[in-house]
Amino acid sequence: MLDIRNLHASVDGKPILRGLDLHVGTGEVHAIMGPNGSGKSTLAQVLAGRDSFTVEDGSVSWDGVDLLAMPTEERARAGLFLAFQYPVEIPGVSNAYFLKAAVNAVRRHRGEPEYDAMDFLKRVKAEMKTVGMREEFLYRSVNEGFSGGEKKRNEVLQMALLEPRLAILDETDSGLDIDALRTVADGVNRLRSPERSMIVITHYQRLLDYIVPDHVHVLSRGRIVRSGGRELAHELEERGYGWIDEAQATPAAQGAAS
């Protein structure tokens, strides 16, 4: 359903993605691993439509539609969700107000009736329970003064409310202790479904013990350099990323370096 071909993207003239190919089928969970600076977050942001990145070449087809031609908010309404590595604080805007506006924007797009305040509160309170968020977070400003774990929970909450077709989780494990990681992973696992695809971006294999992927890809210098099953993640855990970089730099020496 998501078909990325030869994707090249740059920021301020500096190339980051250099010919990335990836195919994610409906209902599949793909993990993307890679060292810092390999382009993981850039991929997430380009797919979501951040305009500080320039797509230089390549195509992204999403259920037959040219994803790159769609404005950011249209992508979101059509069911693309990005769980941010660093969720943004919006002072002065209550979480409840923000969530309701977002959910209703998506519902309008789907031709579903908008929630009124009562319906929305009922729904959001139920979802908050499952991700372990206290009700007071509804009435605080979006992410303002939230701890790292609370911010990530708020991301999973939004994902649950917006019911995306394609969810991209950008380093959702970063900055979480093991308990918070487990809660967040549980929240994500509950949302796995045959209609929903996920791209899980992570630096560490730890997260993949909780969110078990169907496929694992290794990103290095802006390209997918290895793909495999979940055993690939374990291999990376044991050997680090060094061997991949070296293998890429000197293809002749492949296998020799360790």
Partner: peptide, 23 residues
């Protein structure tokens, strides 16, 4: 902030006016 709001399906105008009214 605008990108965050737009990624949730809001337009940039909605996002700005939301922030400004909150302010």
């Amino acid at each position: 902030q605008l990108f965050y709001a737009m990624q949730r399906g809001l337009t940039a105008e909605d996002a700005v006016s939301m922030i400004v009214s909150g302010f």
